[in-house]
């Protein structure tokens, strides 16, 4: 089943840096709010805003949250282990980028 016929190109909305509410993030990833709260508590996600109702996440946090879900599932991590893994992965990515 393919539909090659696309009449014209679609224009999406370019998302601003901190644009997603907790509700939108959860809806988009099917994550429980409690799970996101934990990720924030352990600094895996760092939204802007003081209280959960005002939090604004980056669009990139969608990818980050999914990565966290996969790592927890596939390596049986707890949250502090996850936070460490994510931090080390960020550092490795940065080092690889510098190496290039």
């Amino acid at each position: 089943m393919t539909d090659h016929e696309q009449p014209s190109a679609l224009s999406g909305e370019l998302l601003h840096q901190y644009c997603l509410s907790l509700h939108q993030l959860c809806h988009s990833t099917a994550a429980e709010p409690d799970f996101v709260l934990k990720l924030v508590e352990y600094d895996v996600l760092e939204p802007q805003g003081q209280r959960a109702v005002n939090w604004r996440f980056q669009a990139n946090d969608l990818a980050r949250l999914r990565k966290a879900q996969r790592l927890i599932r596939d390596f049986e991590l707890n949250f502090s282990g996850l936070a460490l893994v994510m931090q080390l992965l960020d550092e490795v990515a940065e080092l690889r980028r510098l190496e290039e």
Partner: peptide
């Protein structure tokens, strides 16, 4: 499989997201 034609606006950079 689904094929989509998407406009990439000028001025985008890595890590940004476009919502369709």
């Amino acid at each position: 499989e689904r094929h989509l034609n998407v406009n990439i606006p000028k001025g985008v950079y890595a890590g940004q997201h476009i919502r369709l």
